[in-house]
Design a protein around this nucleic acid. Structure first.
Length: 348
DNA sequence: GAGATTTGACCAGA
DNA sequence: TCTGGTCAAATCTC
């Protein structure tokens, strides 16, 4: 893990600490509370993306959350070693709730169940049943609409317990319902036609079946299934099967694109929210640590930061419709970060 | 009227 | 035989 990544993690921890220490005051100032929560989510989401995309520790660490139907003891398996995956066993990633209370990883995140769910942090540890042997690829983000992707493209059909023979490669994602809307599945940038809905044994909610609307025109074989989770109706489990060949949406979320082909996101800019907290709280914010300072910037760059953060937050948290627009917004915001970073580095 | 959605029936894998 | 996935006719919406 490089220093910038460490500083980002420390920064997220510090923000959480600040939030915790000022919680009694912030409960009466919901606007600031929400902003600070969003910022913490953004920081850790960015860390997650960088880790997964850069591949420094990504897949191995996620494997540490137990793949292979093992016991609770394996849930926090050593990050230094790959857990054993039983032949033909089911694979899943342990839920955050299953992590021991002493877990540092768990301690990094908020303890309140509802808040975690709202922020989508739990999605980083989403439960998964299905195949074995595939890679876990990084989702696009945390927060509302955040997602966890498990790519089983590398798994053989014989390894997929419960799946049918010759079933095409599939990717399972968990996506929070946009704005808490449980009526409509989250958009992913592609256009789908619903061709079936069915009650599934042992499931509370019906599963919906979709096929790419361009399957006739472009002979596109892409399909997806959308299933609401029994215990968390605000979260959809979306199973993608087959790659799109239609290329109907250039801005669509690149579900199946290998992480290695995606440029790592730039370092997340520093926050103004924490500054705002300090301002609003009249100096209740504790002294910054080295981690905070490593990520802090001042001067005119703050306005750009704020604007970019606002844009990104708006795109990530408020967009429930056109994915292309939101993704454009996100990437344009990232471009802004990158430009700003470059200029700052030149100054240094 | 065209396209999307719903829903019951059918098919095939386990 | 059971169950998940798909088909296709009926219905709905624009």
């Amino acid at each position: 893990m490089d220093d910038s990544l460490k500083s980002m993690v420390l920064r997220g921890c510090n923000l959480a600490t600040i939030l915790e220490q000022n919680l009694p005051i912030l409960v009466n100032q919901p606007d600031i509370l929400v902003k600070s929560c969003e910022e913490i989510v953004s920081v850790f989401s960015n860390v997650k993306e960088r880790v997964l995309y850069v591949g420094q520790i990504g897949v191995q660490e996620l494997h540490g959350f137990e793949i292979g139907g093992g016991s609770r003891e394996h849930a926090m398996a050593s990050l230094d070693s790959q857990p054993a995956i039983p032949e033909g066993g089911s694979a899943y990633v342990k839920r955050l709730d299953d992590l021991p209370e002493s877990s540092e990883m768990k301690g990094m995140f908020l303890h309140d169940e509802r808040q975690r769910r709202q922020l989508g942090l739990e999605l980083m540890f989403g439960e998964m049943r299905g195949g074995v042997g595939g890679d876990i690829t990084g989702g696009s983000s945390g927060g509302i609409g955040g997602e966890t992707t498990l790519d089983f493209s590398a798994a053989t059909s014989s390894q997929r317990q419960g799946s049918r023979k010759n079933e095409p490669d599939r990717v399972v994602k968990r996506i929070a319902a946009p704005q808490g809307n449980t009526d409509t599945p989250p958009e992913d940038g592609f256009t789908w036609k619903k061709y079936g809905q069915k009650e599934i044994l042992g499931r509370v909610y019906q599963r919906s079946y979709y096929i790419c609307t361009h399957h006739k025109l472009h002979n596109c074989p892409a399909k997806k299934q959308v299933q609401r989770l029994d215990h968390e109706p605000f979260i959809f489990e979306v199973t993608y099967r087959n790659n799109h060949t239609c290329r109907v949406s250039s801005a669509a979320t690149p579900v199946l694109i290998p992480p290695s082909t995606i440029a790592p996101p730039p370092p997340f800019p520093t926050s103004l929210v924490s500054t705002n907290i300090s301002h609003h709280l009249g100096g209740h914010v504790p002294a910054t640590s080295s981690g905070m300072e490593a990520g802090s910037r001042g001067g005119s760059g703050q306005f750009n930061d704020f604007q970019a953060v606002a844009d990104m937050a708006d795109a990530m948290f408020n967009s429930g419709s056109s994915s292309s627009n939101s993704m454009d917004l996100i990437f344009s915001s990232m471009d802004e970060y990158h430009k700003w970073d470059s200029t700052e580095e030149k100054k240094d």
